[in-house]
């Protein structure tokens, strides 16, 4: 099992990105997803301490006409959330992969990372959509 001592980013088919660094994984939604949603007006974040399995509804992101669930990409426990999104949800549109991160998970099973796509694979995947 690989241990990522440098931050490395992976992707899900549901358009979440996951940046893995040691035991922690930072999660957000991709540019493709925020663009499809349109102007984001509200983000509902999980509570610190909450635990999720892959595919669980972890957060909600809303535009004016749509509400989408953000799924947990791996097993993990929430150790930090991006509280700034509550006041400035537009950050997800403006900076989806940096300032617009949703939460940090403590990784339960590092082996799950292998099931995610790397950047090239995700890019190829988006082109098929």
């Amino acid at each position: 099992m690989t241990r990522y001592t440098q931050p490395t980013t992976f992707y899900t088919e549901d358009h979440e990105w996951v940046t893995v660094h040691n035991d922690l994984a930072t999660v957000g939604i991709t540019h493709y997803a925020e663009n499809a949603l349109g102007d984001i007006v509200f983000v509902e974040l999980p509570e610190v301490g909450a635990e999720f399995a892959p595919g669980d509804d972890m957060a909600v992101v809303e535009s004016v006409k749509a509400a989408s669930d953000v799924y947990a990409p791996i097993h993990g426990k929430v150790v930090e959330v991006n509280g700034a999104l509550s006041d400035k949800p537009e950050t997800v549109n403006e900076s989806p992969t940096e300032k617009g991160w949703f939460c940090v998970l403590e990784i339960k099973d590092g082996a799950e990372i292998a099931g995610l796509m790397d950047e090239a694979a995700y890019k190829a995947y988006c082109e098929t959509l």
Binding site: H15, A33, G38, K65, D69
Partner: peptide, 12 residues
């Protein structure tokens, strides 16, 4: 995330 394809311009 659950993708929504009903996005449309909501700010003029």
């Amino acid at each position: 995330m659950s993708m929504n394809t009903q996005g449309r311009p909501t700010s003029p």
